[in-house]
């Protein structure tokens, strides 16, 4: 039986998650399983990508100035896809920030500690959430308007071809755990409220928040997945896998930043700078 405060934490986190993330697993599965009247446009080569760029411009890039948009077409496909990735990342980081503020106790933390938790947590959370938009064949993009095939992403030139494959491999293992949005809400909160990020000042305060989330997560999994007693320890292992995934991703982005003519969004620069 769950204590009332734990139950309310589970409910609060689920509500905040549904409120702040425009995409969630339930919605993504509707698109990915074809149970929608407007199926996503499939991007599987250069032609379909160009078509999608015209059709889904706003969903792919938001309100990028029209001047930038026209010069965008002159850039190579890899650079354009890298830009779409960045746009989606910035959007998710913004959503994650709002979600973090809804975690009880987070907003009362020292502002520098809040920054540190986001700096180290957002990419781990982002890749956990990204798995909801993936199946073995590809990735849902542009708010469900598009679907980029895994093969197309693998066919890009190096180093861009190395960008998404590790995320697919993680996603396939993670999706096998069959979490739903109410589980994921607590998992994402647990990623963000992590007491061992470098440079935190009030570790004990963060550990208290973390403890209540982990406790709620354990009880939530027991009640939502009663036939899978090992789910909780398996999920804790995923936290370590995500850390590794982000370390490798950060290295790849630094490499792209150094060797390619691809500018990095200032928010993402802040996150990557002196990360690991």
């Amino acid at each position: 039986s769950q204590k009332p405060d734990t139950k309310s934490l589970v409910r609060q986190m689920h509500e905040a998650y549904l409120k702040h993330f425009h995409m969630n697993k339930a919605k993504a599965r509707v698109f990915l399983t074809g149970k929608t009247s407007t199926p996503p446009f499939v991007i599987h080569d250069m032609d379909t990508l160009q078509h999608a760029e015209r059709k889904l411009h706003t969903q792919l890039l938001g309100n990028v100035a029209s001047g930038d948009a026209s010069s965008l077409q002159e850039r190579e496909v890899e650079a354009r896809l890298f830009l779409f990735c960045q746009y989606a990342s910035v959007e998710t980081v913004t959503e994650l920030t709002e979600f973090a503020k809804a975690v009880p106790g987070f907003a009362a933390l020292d502002l520098n500690d809040q920054v540190t938790l986001l700096k180290y947590g957002v990419y781990e959370a982002l890749f956990a959430l990204l798995a909801s938009c993936m199946n073995k064949d590809g990735l849902l993009v542009a708010r469900g308007g598009g679907f980029i095939t895994r093969e197309f992403l693998k066919s890009l030139r190096k180093p861009f071809s190395d960008m998404m494959e590790p995320k697919f491999q993680f996603a396939m293992r993670f999706n096998a755990l069959e979490l739903d949005d109410s589980d994921l809400a607590l998992f994402v909160a647990a990623i963000i409220c992590c007491g061992d990020r470098p440079g935190l000042s009030d570790v004990s305060h963060i550990e208290r928040i973390q403890e209540s989330i982990i406790h709620a997560l354990r009880l939530q999994l027991l009640s939502n997945h009663p036939d899978n007693a090992l789910l909780f320890p398996k999920l804790l292992q995923k936290l370590a896998d995500l850390r590794q995934l982000v370390t490798e991703h950060a290295e790849l982005v630094q490499e792209i930043n150094k060797t390619e003519d691809a500018s990095l969004h200032p928010l993402l620069q802040e996150i990557y700078r002196d990360m690991y």
Partner: peptide, 20 residues
């Protein structure tokens, strides 16, 4: 603090737009 200007801003103001 200067190193994480945008994160600070996002934490302090809700729904501030961050354009590419």
């Amino acid at each position: 603090k200067e190193k994480h200007k945008i994160l600070h801003r996002l934490l302090q103001n809700s729904s501030s737009p961050v354009d590419l």
